[in-house]
Design a protein around this nucleic acid. Sequence first.
DNA 1: TACCGCACGTGTTCACGTTCACATGGTGCG
DNA 2: CGCACCATGTGAACGTGAACACGTGCGGTA
Lengths: 223, 223
Amino acid sequence: MAERARRIPEATVARLPVYLRCLLELAEAKIATISSERLAELAGVNAAKVRKDLSYLGSYGTRGVGYDVEYLLFQMSRELGLTQDWPVVIVGVGNLGQALANYGGFTDRGFPIAALVDADRAKVGQKVHGNVVRHIDELPAIAAEVGIAIGIIATPAGAAQEVADRLVAAGIASILNFAPAVIAVPPSTSLRKVDLAVELQILSFYQQRRSGSIAVGPERAAN
Amino acid sequence: MAERARRIPEATVARLPVYLRCLLELAEAKIATISSERLAELAGVNAAKVRKDLSYLGSYGTRGVGYDVEYLLFQMSRELGLTQDWPVVIVGVGNLGQALANYGGFTDRGFPIAALVDADRAKVGQKVHGNVVRHIDELPAIAAEVGIAIGIIATPAGAAQEVADRLVAAGIASILNFAPAVIAVPPSTSLRKVDLAVELQILSFYQQRRSGSIAVGPERAAN
DNA sequence: TACCGCACGTGTTCACGTTCACATGGTGCG
DNA sequence: CGCACCATGTGAACGTGAACACGTGCGGTA
């Protein structure tokens, strides 16, 4: 609602949720104030980066003192859009899809699983973690019913692009892709991907290097 | 074995597995030769980046023609260390751990699940996807038995750091962390993380921006 | 009320990765 | 045998993000 015109670098956006989690832990431990140095330690980055990242949100710290945990939590939640729930639909009720549905960590953090859909009519009607599986053809109807914000693709690679197209057509503008495939979406849609095989292959690369010759490696995760 | 002294940028390493997957598809379709432009399209990047990335591996292309799919596949597999299997241990046999064990996609791609361990003795002895769950205290013994290369942390956040310490102590130098927690490892250890909640919160940020004011968003995933 | 110390906020410097544009050299045709 | 075409490989420009260092302002103390 305010004049939120300031641009936040993508790299910073990716770190905000990590800070948020640290702040939640601090709040739970009844710690009222935190310095950039200490927060940096918890988040596994350096202090200068923390200060710069937080400065994009506004000047919420107090010089000579640090940041008020509760206040920063509030501001950050607001900025990340976590003051409201964002209903999620999971497409694909195979191994991964079911695991995600059963995970539970989503609903807790403001991402309730509003629907499960699958292309296989044999799976339609099954109950997974309290949700009935519906057919993917119903996607537009479901999206309209409950205002679904985010679609999670948990299908085999071959189906991923078509599912993405359907999600976009249903008006869903945020997609998280678990399928091992590159998919294209319009510029107005946000797309993120999680590919387990890719992660393992990256680890394999450095492992290989370590065994083969003089040690070279990335010490820190680069998400 | 060779004088593999050239340094490959981390960003490039993260893209190699994607190229690899595209090449596998091409090989399956009996396509013998591929241009950087076409490969770029498949991988969802631009052609210049493809050429630069591939040039780090060596000069494996032919000017005026393109890249030989089979040959490039071979060279890339070698570079990524995929000519051998890398046994994996999954720590934590909860929802996520079981899903990963059942997934199957790992073994196919050269990352056989060699062991499952958990701290909960009630779970020890259970069978998951053909593997018997063993106690985490046995980790050093298991690691020595089969040469385990990679450890996957699928525990709750609270246990993650201790598990990481134990993996490192057992001589495992590559870790993939699914727990929603920041963990520290020695510089000689490779660490990558996958955090589902973080991914959703990043999507939430852009979704929020889109609803609130003039549309701003990252069109492409940035892994 | 004035001074001192401390931690934030930020302008600057530096390194990395991306993009561009073109020289290079291989292929095939006439 | 030579020429024209074409896609690779790469140096250089550009942009973004990381690291640094210091100015700034607030709180505490005497």
